[in-house]
Design a binder for these strands. Structure first.
Lengths: 109, 109
DNA sequence: TGATATACCTTGACAGACATAGTAACTCGT
DNA sequence: ACGAGTTACTATGTCTGTCAAGGTATATCA
């Protein structure tokens, strides 16, 4: 069973920022992590992920740099910025509120 | 405090179907109900609501008829169909899964 | 040599939510 | 009787996030 990203549309940024709270990471790793963490139930498409990176970098939530891999394919690493942490906190709050609202609206009885 | 509909994007149909489970209703009433039930925290824009009606009617989840108001503005009433009930059940399940997944992905510690 | 995995990027299409505008009938205060 | 506000629905075009589809390049392993 797997859900479409459209059901969590708008929350991709939050997921990425959350992961970057722990440590810098790069696209491929983040994608694998999400897939594995959810047992394949949720998968971000590459285009979605990389366009999220662009958006987040443009609005100052993350910064990026090329890794210095001496072997294998090059990797672009992303760091969460101070501003990104604030955005993450706000997004988390918004998500809690969204959950409450939808649950309230569709609860039965 | 209020959230944008984009945070619940894709769940508008579910909200509408849920309300129609109780009884037939019409656009303006549904919109007011949502707004009041959430103390104004969540409001569907008219364009969003009416385009959802179109979508739901096209895919057979609801049917509609003009009310026979003898006074006041005309009202178009909507009924949930048998198929709509099935869609609703599926959407509810999907929402539960989406919640679980996002909570898992952004939980800290 | 070819398949698979790692790793990133670009382009264009699509769908849902939105802003904005319009139509029309009723209600209420002055 | 007038204007403002409420009720109630509709149409058009824009924006944004996700996606499908395609591409580049390196390393590993059969």
């Amino acid at each position: 069973m797997s859900i479409t990203s459209d059901l969590l549309r708008g929350h991709t940024d939050t997921i990425i920022l959350r992961l970057l709270l722990n440590r810098d990471s790069y696209g491929y790793e983040i994608n694998k992590y999400i897939s594995e963490k959810t047992d394949g139930a949720y998968e971000l498409k590459e285009a979605t992920l990389y366009s999220a990176f662009r958006r987040l970098e443009e609005n100052g939530s993350i910064s990026s740099y090329w890794g210095d891999e001496t072997t294998g394919a090059r990797r672009r690493y992303y760091s969460i910025t101070r501003q990104g942490r604030a955005v993450y906190e706000q997004n988390k709050t918004d998500w809690e509120e969204a959950k409450t609202i939808l649950d309230e609206l569709i609860k039965e009885g």
